[in-house]
Each structure stands twice: as C-alpha cells, then as structure tokens.
C-alpha cells in the first residue's frame, strides 16, 4: 500500500522471529513427533474404539455448543445493538467474562452448579435431567467458554448495517420475519459464520472447563483433548502425537475456512479494507 512509513523490515522480522520461536517451533516438533508415528500406525490409533468415541463425542458436543451460541449469541448481539434498556452496559461487559475468566475456574463453578446438590443440579434432577458428568455437561462447558465469539463478530456488523433497506421493506408491508430472513441475516451471515466457526474450533480444544464437569469416562464422556492428555500421562507419545496432530489439522482447516469467509466478505462489500 505504501512504502513511505518506515519500520517494515524490523516489524516483520520481529513478528516472524517470535512466531517461529513461540508458535512454529513447538508445532513443528509436534508434527515431527507425529510423522515419526508412521501412516499405518496413525490410522490404527485413529481407528481405535476409544479415539473414535472421543472424536465423535467432541464433535457432537462442540456442534451442540455452537448451535446454542449461534442462537444465543445472535440474540445477544441483536439486543445489544438494537435496544436501549437498563443494565445494557453491564450485559455488554458480561459477554467477555468467558474470555477473561480462567477455564479451570469456569469448570469448577459449572460443576458446583450442576452437581446433584448444586443450585441447578437439584431442580433439574427432579425432571430427570442430569448435566454434570454427562455429555450435556461437556456441551454446557463448551458453550460457556465460547459465548463471546458469535456476539463479538456479529455485533459490529449489525451496528454498521444501514437500516434504510429494512425500513423501505417495512413500509412496503413485509413482515419482520421476512425482512430478517431476506435482508438482515444475509448481511450479517459471513460474520455470523466466522463467529460460529471460531466458537466451534474453541470448543473442540477446550480442556480446563470440561475436565471438572465431565465424568471423564472412556467411550462416554472423554473428550479428545483429555484423551491426548491421558495418552501423555500414560507415556503413549505416538498416540498423543497422532491425536494432537489431528486436532491441529482440524484447527488449521477451521482457520482456513474462517479466512476464506473473511476474504469473501471483503470482496462482497467491495473494498479492500
């Protein structure tokens, strides 16, 4: 864009050096360790009953958490942008709690809430709903830790959204639902998708919040990150490397998808920046 402003070699140098040392070196070591495993062994590890169950559980619960946050996050962003009401500022600040709160503390708090003698666990058990130590608990923990993603990506787009089209549509007599579906949602959809995929990626890797509330039962309530952790504790490095590399690959794919969406979004809007 411009070569007038100085400092390009220095800032790029620092950035690349730091990223190489802090991010790429360890990830490279991980892949090196995983490559050592060999393709056949890798497939055998990934085909194992316990690994398969962990991946299935993690993907499912992350999907549930993402759907929840898709709906709740969208509603939250909507309420924060469109309405004025007492406590709005507080609500806006609360959204970031899961980013700032340590995951272990979140896990501890959620498990205290949802166990049989907890504030929620007691009433819920009357209806036969158990959350703590079940897949539902895992989804709750994932949902909690990834609340801000959808809200914070949709919110600015919604704020910038010009209201003339919807006003015109409304004066033409279109219903709210129709305007939302035809005008508003398509406009915020790329941001929504970005938020949702970040939410999903984060849920896949969540550990601290989950281990306190999941029962950690193999096949039933054992998530992938915990399985990788257990494989390390068991000194099963090939298995840990294989699982971790797979999670890493999923993270890469998600990141790629998010970037594609952002590019698409930029192109749609028409401006470079």
């Amino acid at each position: 864009m411009n070569r007038v402003v100085p400092g390009f070699p220095l800032s790029l140098g620092i950035t690349l050096f730091y990223l190489s040392l802090i991010v790429l070196l360890p990830l490279g070591a991980l892949l090196w360790q995983a490559a050592d495993v060999g393709w056949d062994r890798y497939l055998a590890i990934m085909a194992g009953t316990r690994t398969q169950a962990a991946f299935r559980l993690t993907l499912t619960t992350a999907a549930v958490a993402t759907v929840f946050n898709g709906i709740y996050g969208l509603a939250l962003a909507w309420v924060l942008v469109r309405y004025e009401f007492p406590g709005k500022r507080l609500l806006d600040a609360l959204v970031d709690v899961p980013f700032a709160l340590p995951t272990a503390v979140a896990g501890l708090a959620l498990s205290a809430l949802f166990v049989k003698n907890g504030w929620f666990g007691g009433p819920l058990s009357v209806f036969g709903i158990e959350v703590a130590y079940t897949p539902l608990g895992i989804a709750v923990a994932m949902a909690f830790t990834s609340i801000p993603f959808v809200v914070r990506t949709v919110q600015p787009v919604l704020e910038d959204l010009a209201t003339d089209v919807e006003e015109a549509a409304a004066t033409l007599g279109a219903s709210d639902a129709r305007i939302f579906a035809r005008v508003i949602f398509p406009a915020i959809f790329p941001a929504f998708l970005t938020g949702a995929s970040l939410c999903f990626a984060r849920s896949l890797g969540e550990f601290g919040a989950i281990i306190f509330i999941a029962g950690n039962l193999p096949l039933k309530t054992e998530v992938v990150s915990l399985l990788a952790f257990i494989r390390i504790e068991e000194y099963e490095y090939p298995a840990a490397a294989a699982i971790a590399a797979t999670l890493l690959a999923i993270a890469f794919v998600m990141l790629f998808v998010v970037n594609m969406i952002q590019l698409w979004q930029q192109r749609r809007i028409g401006t470079g920046d």
Binding site: K116, N117, A132, Y133, G215, N216, L217, E233
Partner: peptide
C-alpha cells in the same frame, strides 16, 4: 460399573465425597 474415572486417587475421592458420585 464405574461412574467417574479421575486421573488420580484424590480426584476420585473428591468425586465421591464432594460431588456425591
């Protein structure tokens, strides 16, 4: 028949005592 597998012995105790599992 096990409801919770913690990684260490004390985790199991906590699950049984504090979490009534």
């Amino acid at each position: 028949n096990v409801v919770v597998f913690d990684t260490g012995g004390r985790g199991a105790t906590t699950s049984f005592v504090e979490r009534e599992q």
